[in-house]
Structure formats: structure tokens, C-alpha cells
């Protein structure tokens, strides 16, 4: 039987690749050019989506930037000026801080709940399917509907204090100092999104890696720490980044459930944009550009984190 295969070589003579170099087992057809081709094809395939989206975003940002610099006034002559940026300065810094705080709190909560849900979805067969169904059902609910529902639930005359029989002394969750209802609504909705993204990423491979870890002696906590969390990290960072940027730029929930003052960036931008004073439009544009800059910074941070995890996927 041994004659069927190639002759054995002594172990010491095994043709191993030199350290530091990758051994390519592919033949000559696998040239650099052929490896790039699929990437180029993929780029061509996404162009129909990227071009219009990019055009709209670029046009909108350019228009907002020009307006914020006084170059496209509704009345009067175009004049390069930073006045629209200076006018809401106090508001701008406060609004930026408030927006980042709300987005951070909501994203952290959503990431924790979403991760826990994803682990439950991938770890349990029957209840996991039910959880996945509930998460899927949450996603199509519009934020404005969710905000109304959270308002009806958490307000001092809402459903929850009535159920609990609290007539006085209910904390100001809606419109209060700590923006709890706003954060809760975003965390609820975004946690469902994060749960689905993370569970999808884990579903295809966590079982086999979990079995590998088990037979290497890893107990449940070690498996979570050394295997499951690292495997979930890329999807978690990506979906949390998307959620952060969404919450940062979202208007309706903060407007419905938040305090009148101070205002987060999107609410401030909307109020200035719809002001009776047309001269406030450039200020609204400045706030919008500032919001976009913050969002881009968050995207850059998430992208950098994902690049570090590139090999993990």
C-alpha cells in the first residue's frame, strides 16, 4: 500500500519554509495580479452604491461648509467669514459635549446588552431563536415611534409609575437632567442592531472554536475571555461605531424626550435651520459641519480599531 504514495522522507529533511516568509502553496496562476482581480471586481460591484451616496454626502457637506463660511448667503453678497462658527460658540461646545455624552452612554449600554444578547442567541438553541426573533422585530420600529413609546412608559405620568403605584417622587427620566429616557431609547433600539450583527458574526464559527477551547481545557469563563469575546470584537466594534455615529446625528429622540436646554448638536442644528431668522442658516450649517466632523472622527477611531483586528476575522 505504501507504494501508492510518494516515498517518505526523513523528518530532519522536511522541506519547511524559512521563518519570516510565507509559504505559497499555490501554483504560478496565483500571481499578484490574479489576487487583485477579485478586489477590483468587488470595487466595481459596489460603485453603483458608493457613487450616488458619495455624491450626495459630498454635495451636502460642501454646501453646508460653504454656507457656514458665509459663501452662500440667502441674502447679501458672499463674504468669507467665521461669524457663523463664532455665533453659537458657547452653544456649540455644550451641544458637542452633550451629544458625545449621550452617544457614548447609549452606545456602551447598547454594546453591553447587544453582546449579552448575541451570546445568548448563539449559545442556546431554542431561547436563542426567540431572542433573535425579538431582536429582529425591534429593528424595524422607527426611532420616533420608539421615543413615543419610551415617553409613555417612563414619564412621571407614564405606564411604569402607574404600574408601580408611584404617585409622587418619580424621578424625571423624561426631560430630566440626565437624559435617561433618551439614552434608554437609543440603547434599546441599537442593542437589537448590535445583537444581530454580533450574533451573525459569531454564529458561523463560534461553535467550532468553542469546542476547540473546551478540549484544550478552557472552562466557561476562560472560553468567554480568551475565545468568544475576541471573536466577537470586530463585529462589536463595527456595529458599536455605526450606532455611535447614528446616535450622534439623530434628532427626533432627543427632541421628543430631552430637555429644552442645553440642546444636543442635531436639535440645535434643526432649531437654527428652522428659525424665522434666515441669518441663522449659516450657524445651523456650522453646527451640522461640526456634527459631521465628530462623526468622521468616531468612524476613524473605529476603523483604526478594526484594522488592528484585521487578522481576527
Amino acid at each position: 500500500m505504501a507504494a501508492d504514495g510518494p516515498r517518505r522522507q526523513p523528518v530532519t529533511g522536511l522541506p519547511l519554509a524559512a521563518p519570516g516568509r510565507r509559504t505559497h502553496t499555490a501554483g504560478p496562476l496565483h500571481t499578484g495580479r490574479s489576487r487583485r482581480s477579485p478586489r477590483r471586481r468587488a470595487l466595481l460591484l459596489i460603485l453603483p452604491a458608493v457613487v450616488p451616496t458619495g455624491a450626495v454626502v459630498l454635495a451636502a457637506l460642501t454646501s453646508a461648509l460653504l454656507s457656514s463660511l458665509g459663501l452662500t448667503p440667502l441674502v447679501g453678497q458672499p463674504r468669507l467669514t467665521l461669524d457663523p462658527w463664532r455665533a453659537p460658540t458657547d452653544h456649540l461646545w455644550t451641544a458637542a459635549g452633550l451629544s458625545v455624552a449621550i452617544a457614548t452612554a447609549a452606545t456602551v449600554l447598547a454594546a453591553l446588552v447587544g453582546l449579552a444578547t448575541a451570546l445568548a442567541i448563539t449559545g442556546r438553541r431554542r431561547s436563542g431563536r426567540l431572542l433573535a426573533l425579538l431582536s429582529s422585530a425591534t429593528i424595524p420600529v422607527p426611532h420616533v415611534v420608539g421615543a413615543a413609546a419610551v415617553g409613555l412608559l417612563l414619564a412621571d405620568a407614564g405606564f411604569l409609575p402607574r404600574v408601580l403605584g408611584v404617585e409622587t417622587g418619580w424621578p424625571p427620566l423624561v426631560g430630566g437632567r440626565w437624559w435617561i429616557a433618551v439614552v434608554a431609547e437609543y440603547a434599546w433600539k441599537e442593542s437589537a442592531f448590535i445583537a444581530l450583527v454580533v450574533s451573525s458574526a459569531l454564529a458561523s464559527r463560534v461553535a467550532s472554536y468553542r469546542d476547540t477551547a473546551i478540549v484544550l481545557g478552557a472552562r466557561p469563563w476562560a472560553r468567554l475571555r480568551y475565545v468568544t469575546l475576541p471573536l466577537a470584537a470586530p463585529a462589536l466594534v463595527a456595529s458599536a461605531g455605526i450606532s455611535f455615529v447614528y446616535v450622534l446625528g439623530s434628532y427626533e429622540v432627543a427632541w421628543l424626550l430631552g430637555r429644552p436646554s442645553p440642546e444636543p448638536l442635531p436639535v440645535l442644528a434643526f432649531r437654527l435651520f428652522t428659525s424665522l431668522e434666515l441669518t441663522a442658516r449659516p450657524e445651523a450649517a456650522a453646527v451640522a459641519v461640526a456634527t459631521a466632523a465628530l462623526a468622521l472622527a468616531a468612524v476613524a477611531v473605529a476603523a483604526a480599531a478594526l484594522r488592528r483586528m484585521e487578522g481576527w476575522r
Binding site: 472554536y209 480568551y226 475576541p230 471573536l231 483586528m309 487578522g311 476575522r313
Partner: peptide, 8 residues
């Protein structure tokens, strides 16, 4: 499949 942990 070798199933080496990709993050290590």
C-alpha cells in the same frame, strides 16, 4: 480544520 485562534 486546524481552527487556530485567529486573534492569537
Amino acid at each position: 480544520r486546524p481552527l487556530l485562534f485567529p486573534h492569537l
